[in-house]
Design a protein around this nucleic acid. Structure first.
Lengths: 246, 246
DNA sequence: TTGGGCTTACGGTCAGACCATTAGCCAGAG
DNA sequence: CTCTGGCTAATGGTCTGACCGTAAGCCCAA
């Protein structure tokens, strides 16, 4: 079984480490963060300092920092008091990843809308059950903003997606919030085209948003689901025939 | 309003580009991939070649490649025919990101399970409607594998998650498949602990999987939902009280 | 046919240098 | 006294040129 087993034990010669040095450093720092020995906001030593500690060149350290930065684990600031600071991967970052994946693969607006509808309908029972008075106040604030924007002809679809994310946040489950957040980008992408065909979408959409908030406040799941269903279905119809990509 | 507005127009002096050069290169290559001008499996020019084309040093190109690699957009191979190759199967990497988020932030297994249940229940109508005979054959194949593994005492939770992903694929919506796939990793993480407390989970789980496939084949949404509900609820109970992190 | 040794095209790493940015300090002008 | 401007030190960003290790392809001799 072993190519060069002169003894019965093939474990004599085990493969040596083949990882990149920079990757080893990445793992090491990641581990420190996981263990909490590096907490959010902490500042890592300077690049030149890390070079000496790890016994590698600055290029290698920098590549490691690039990777950590790309993973959202650290933020890098230049200047006198600059350096690498530990940052917890935010929902935005993860959403970016999801959005990347969506735009990079063959994914139609219809696909995205369907997935959205499943999630946003599915969470409503939890939203209705768990929304606090503060949550509802926040939603009404967003409604007002939308009204103002409408009256000034300045309504953008971004206001709509923000509202939907806020609704999802009412489920008080960070995983769900992250998911909906991640749809933010792709949604805007596909909605931008649809808005051209439906300039008054903002007005009707906002009316439905208001109805949704009312239902949530009354803890009326059925109505909430009904409102959301027609709301999203309308979007679905608008984007049904749009091709993937730009 | 402008600090140095000697004229009425503050646009005279606009901020110059402040991005890192390596970041510009990252964006440029990302764009090429988005537009499909670089397809999956394509090989990028060698580092030294890219240096000349972009007019920058090799260090800069390498940092850009590190970032793209960390984002899962390319894979790098060393050696004679090596180089950077465009890679698309980023579903796994996205799951990694979710797993990171879970271990590094306040995201409990219960959170994840709840999100799972919403999605996996929500997709069932579509799964039942769209599953082809091939799909169902595939599911039954997975069931057999699980049976064999059970009889050999070699059942792992990975078999379960694979099944769930396969079910999601029956919805024939890549967005949904991606989402469920991204839960693959985090699910395993939290289930690993739960299995210890419930060694016979594999057997009962597989039975329920079989019942689910039957329901799908009969196009019986209600039964499918019922089966899935009890199936996931059991998991939910097992992970309910697990703390975030390890 | 097979094994071993070249060659070559790669990425991985190093060392040292210079530039740009930023915060903090300090002196001189008002 | 206050504020502007310049100086300095710390730090990340980039460049240059070199050398090493790896892997694929090739060829030749056993």
């Amino acid at each position: 079984m072993n190519a060069a087993s002169t003894t019965s034990d093939g474990d004599l010669f085990r493969p040596v480490s083949v990882d990149r040095v920079s990757q080893v450093i990445v793992d090491q720092i990641k581990q420190l963060i996981r263990e909490g020995r590096l907490a959010n906001g902490d500042r890592l030593p300077s690049e030149r300092d890390l070079c000496q500690r790890f016994g590698v060149s600055r290029v290698t350290v920098r590549e490691a920092l690039r990777v950590l930065e790309a993973n959202g684990l650290i933020e890098i600031h230049v200047g006198s008091r600059g350096g690498a600071f530990v940052a917890s991967p935010t929902k935005e970052r993860l959403g970016e990843g999801l959005a990347d994946l969506m735009t990079l693969t063959q994914l139609t607006p219809a696909n995205v809308t369907e997935a959205r509808s499943i999630i946003e309908l599915g969470i409503l029972p939890f939203v209705v059950e768990r929304a606090t008075e503060d949550d509802i106040r926040g939603l009404r604030l967003l409604l007002e903003e939308a009204q103002v924007a409408l009256s000034q002809d300045a309504y953008t679809m971004s206001l709509s997606t923000t509202f939907h994310v806020a609704v999802a946040a009412c489920a008080h489950n960070p995983a769900i919030e992250t998911l909906v957040h991640s749809f933010h980008g792709p949604m805007l992408l596909s909605l931008r085209q649809a808005q051209i065909a439906a300039p008054d979408m903002g007005r009707r959409g906002t009316e439905e948003h208001a109805a949704l908030v009312d239902a949530i406040e009354k803890r009326d799941v059925e109505t909430a689901v009904a409102v959301m269903t027609t709301h999203i279905d309308r979007t679905a119809n608008l984007v049904r025939d749009i091709e993937p990509g730009d």
